[in-house]
């Protein structure tokens, strides 16, 4: 197993004046792997993702990037970190600035990280093509696109600077099921073709099963179980994981009932 690009070690977090949201969370994200952080609302998934994204500092423990503790004050290191770690969010309507054209949105990481140059337009076009959007998409505004297309734009922005890691917060849960399949396929494709490491927060176990090799189950701010997705979901050792799996609504259960009836 390769060394982790990103890791949290014994991390805790509490918002000021509030009860802790995370307790002693340890998680490793190995290069080229896809990792799911699974749990229900209030479990601390999004907070954990914010720690991994360097948006909040853990109140206990540490976040490691390439084996080094992440120091939010070290600008040179943070620049290298931002270039390597990009993000996608849940709500495709809130994650794109409504007053910017798509070209400007997608090129933002290049401009902000000092990577802009004569090849910027080419890289934006390549990123748009890479997520299956037409070249003329760059001239339009976000409101002219559907939810799935917007999520593609967000993915183009996240991949335009050739990052190593993509951190995604419920990237498909706001999408229709047919669109969801396509975006999950696209994520899998990006992972394969670019060797992208993916860490995804999700409440949807079937999406996790379709995309992620490693799964960590979070309950009330604690990792109750983690490991290979096949083992965690196939043979859950923690009762909460088992309950999560049993709760997933299934088409097949409906069909089985029908068979019993007739």
């Amino acid at each position: 197993m390769s060394s982790p690009v990103l890791a949290v070690r014994d991390a805790g977090f509490a918002y000021r004046g509030a009860a802790p949201v995370l307790h002693g969370v340890s998680l490793e994200i190995a290069a080229g792997r896809s990792v799911a952080i699974v749990g229900e609302s209030g479990a601390g998934k999004t907070t954990l993702l914010r720690l991994l994204l360097g948006l909040n500092r853990p109140t206990g423990g540490e976040v490691l990037f390439d084996g080094q503790p992440l120091d939010l004050r070290n600008r040179a290191r943070m620049r290298a970190f931002r270039r390597s770690v990009q993000s996608v969010f849940q709500d495709p309507y809130s994650s794109l600035d409504p007053r910017q054209r798509v070209r400007r949105i997608v090129s933002e990481p290049l401009r902000s990280l000092g990577l802009a140059g004569p090849d910027t337009d080419g890289r934006v076009a390549a990123a748009l093509a890479g997520v299956g959007l037409p070249a003329d998409a760059g001239d339009r505004y976000p409101h002219e696109f559907s939810g799935g297309q917007r999520q593609r734009i967000a993915l183009a922005r996240a991949t335009v600077c050739d990052p190593r890691v993509l951190l995604a917060d419920e990237p498909v849960s706001a999408l229709d099921v047919t669109t969801r399949v396509r975006i999950v396929d696209l994520l899998g494709e990006l992972k394969e073709s670019r060797g992208l490491t993916i860490a995804m927060v999700s409440h949807d176990l079937s999406v996790v099963a379709a995309l992620c090799e490693h799964t960590a189950v979070l309950e009330s701010g604690r990792v109750v179980e983690q490991g290979d997705t096949r083992e965690v979901l196939g043979a859950p050792s923690h009762p909460y994981t088992a309950r999560l799996i049993a709760s997933v609504p299934r088409l097949l259960s409906a069909l089985r009932l029908e068979k019993h009836d007739g």
């Binding site: 994204l53 360097g54 948006l55 943070m78 620049r79 931002r82 270039r83 770690v85 990009q86 993000s87 969010f89 849940q90 709500d91 809130s94 994650s95 794109l96 600035d97 409504p98 007053r99 910017q100 949105i105 933002e108 990481p109 902000s112 990280l113 967000a154 922005r157 951190l167």
Partner: peptide, 26 residues
């Protein structure tokens, strides 16, 4: 509170540029 601000920050955009590029135009 919008995700595009968080996205801008994780894209490496500095606070002054978040203000001039996203907050003020909006």
């Amino acid at each position: 509170a919008q995700d595009y601000i968080t996205a801008a920050r994780t894209s490496g955009t500095s606070w002054p540029r978040v203000i001039t590029g996203h907050v003020l135009p909006n």
